[in-house]
Design a protein around this nucleic acid. Sequence first.
DNA 1: AATTAATTTAAACACCTGTTTAAATTAATC
DNA 2: GATTAATTTAAACAGGTGTTTAAATTAATT
Lengths: 213, 213
Amino acid sequence: MASRTDTKTRILDAAEKLFAERGFSETSLRLITSKAEVNLASVNYHFGSKKELIRAVLARYLDVFMPSAAIEIKRIHHAPENASLNEIFSALIKPLLELNKVRNGGTIIFLQLLGRGYIESQGHLRWFITTHYGEHLATFVQAVSASAPHIPAAEMFWRLHFTLGTIVFTMASADALNEIAAADYGEHNNIEAIIRKVIPYMAAGVAVPVLTN
Amino acid sequence: MASRTDTKTRILDAAEKLFAERGFSETSLRLITSKAEVNLASVNYHFGSKKELIRAVLARYLDVFMPSAAIEIKRIHHAPENASLNEIFSALIKPLLELNKVRNGGTIIFLQLLGRGYIESQGHLRWFITTHYGEHLATFVQAVSASAPHIPAAEMFWRLHFTLGTIVFTMASADALNEIAAADYGEHNNIEAIIRKVIPYMAAGVAVPVLTN
DNA sequence: AATTAATTTAAACACCTGTTTAAATTAATC
DNA sequence: GATTAATTTAAACAGGTGTTTAAATTAATT
């Protein structure tokens, strides 16, 4: 039933890398199948369509990340003393970095896929994630809200999407930014270093008092 | 030399709207020319290629926004007392909203174009902007740095790109987010309201002390 | 080993893409 | 008003896209 490395897996591995680098619609099935060294038609045979391949690529990461993240959030949320925003966001580092063990470069690939998906899919991915991982998301939002009780729910909605934009855009251009940072400042950051840079930024933004005038 | 509304302008007007909504590569010349009610070949006649059309669309906004923004920044920067980060970011509001007078929905179109450009063009837009509007950018960075002197230059580089990601991602999904906010919280924000929400978030993030351990 | 099922393959399909061409039309110049 | 230049037009071009087909091959089952 399975030859050499599973054809399905070969396709997914090649596809996720190309999708993350170049975006979904910029990546043709012919490019994917040639990199994966499989026949063009095998994508439609195994996945049905390109759209379903995209969904499969995302699901493979979300199914690992989401439960793992929810566990970490709950661990912190249910601790005796209230966790800080920094701690809550930092709780996501471990689940994110674990994706590197699942596959080489898994962390940044996942974050880039997420960004591409949110921007390219006209809200389709947002719907997919909220319907499939709604409880996990709710856990996260609840933990953040408890740590910043002075922020009204509506304002928190916007700010959490600001954070999504921050991280997702940063990751989508992480390679380019890293090159510039290396050239201009002699900095060489890996993905973890960038995540650790962005967390204080996001935490400060989410918690900043709401202006009332 | 010019018939009805200038063909060139009709193309630019139709193109910018579609580019902002759907992205550059998702928008075909046939879609643009049919919306603009001009012949397909006129794009290549007037602009040479699709790539140059994209550049023209962006330039039309950048040429208005950049000088106007630089003036506002300088006005604040050279004021007797040092401006706060909030004030510096807020100085961009007027130039941004002025784009609404240039064209209907100009502000959000510009910000969405910027986001699409940064993400789709693999660093090409970044190069274009820094080479064409380098002095204006430097003015801005200098003003921000003076307002947050405790942030090293390399760290500031990252944080300013975080802010770019925040604003650009937010604007790219502004319509979708607004719908959700309206449904879930009864909020109805226009583009200015969203900008005023995001500024305190960004200012707090940029200025947050750098963790040293 | 024979039969059935699953998979792989090469080719074609129908459609869409940006660009080019050469003729038709409109505008500007003399 | 005739001549030249600028623009618009319809058509074709060359190449790329996702998907489908039917035959060939490989694997699993009886």
